[in-house]
């Protein structure tokens, strides 16, 4: 069995996002980068498939050379192979065309992505790979078991969840229930140094979207305090003034 996990690099969750003075770009000065948290859940599921089914686990990342550090972290956690496509990740479709091109010689049984990256919140990488390869995609996947040629999955739907099966290969996008993120052990960290990263030059390069402007969220005009002794005033405001219920 061969498993591919797609890894994105995002600012740490505690980062306060700032923009350049002209609002044309994100100011990444001093920002610490991490593996996109949802991709860690995807990687954890990949590790489980490796341990339970002897899967070979490959990670792929689209980005310039500073992305090697997150591939090494995946190695430390237990990934066997790493591929980096040496180009800026601009939008989901561009990234996916690169992923498909860079892995075109290989047949993966399962491809796992995070449900979205926490920077641009696109939530499209897994689904698009499914379409580009003509295979089933399961979004917001919380459970994945593989038996023979069949994947059994559970995904979130509006107001509930759905169980489904699909013939391999499949691509799923991970929510946090899919797998508990792993912490690298010392042996993994030592091995990570010597595992080679295959660097692939971009195939297509064309972007489909651009972002030329950013805004910070509107600041609240200030909190109106209500004395705890008169807490019921809040209900009066929400009901009579705001007519929220």
């Amino acid at each position: 069995m061969k498993v591919l996990v797609c890894i994105s690099k995002t600012p740490d969750t505690t980062t306060k996002i700032a923009f350049t003075a002209d609002h044309s770009a994100v100011n990444y000065d001093g920002v610490k980068f991490i593996i996109n948290p949802y991709d860690e859940h995807a990687l954890a599921k990949g590790m489980e498939l490796k341990e339970n089914h002897g899967a070979e686990l490959t990670v792929i990342h689209v980005g310039p050379a500073d992305g090697d550090q997150i591939i090494r972290k995946c190695f430390a956690i237990g990934a066997d192979k790493g591929i980096r496509v040496n180009t800026d990740a601009i939008d989901g479709l561009q990234v996916d065309k690169e992923i498909v091109a860079a892995t075109s010689g290989e047949q993966f049984d399962a491809i796992i992505t995070g449900r979205e990256s926490i920077d641009y919140n696109g939530g499209m990488v897994g689904e698009m790979i499914g379409e580009l390869l003509g295979i089933p995609s399961v979004s917001y996947c919380q459970q994945l078991d593989i038996d023979g040629n069949t994947a059994s999955m559970k995904r979130f739907i509006d107001g509930g969840e759905e169980s489904l099966t699909a013939q391999l290969p499949v691509v799923v996008s991970a929510v946090k229930e899919l797998g508990e993120p792993r912490i690298p052990n010392m042996r993994g960290i030592m091995q990570a140094r010597t595992k080679p990263i295959t660097v692939v030059e971009p195939a297509t390069g064309a972007a489909n979207t651009t972002i030329g402007k950013y805004d910070a969220p509107a600041q609240k005009s200030g909190c109106k305090y209500i004395d705890a002794c008169n807490a019921e005033q809040l209900i009066e405001i929400l009901h009579n003034e705001k007519k929220l219920f």
Binding site: G92, G123, E127, M128, E131, D158
Partner: peptide, 21 residues
């Protein structure tokens, strides 16, 4: 949930630009 599952697939199929959310 279903819009998120099919919108990106459609964009890939149509070779379209997509914005989600």
């Amino acid at each position: 949930y279903n819009g998120k599952a099919m919108g990106p697939r459609l964009a890939a199929k149509m070779d379209a630009s997509i914005v989600t959310g």
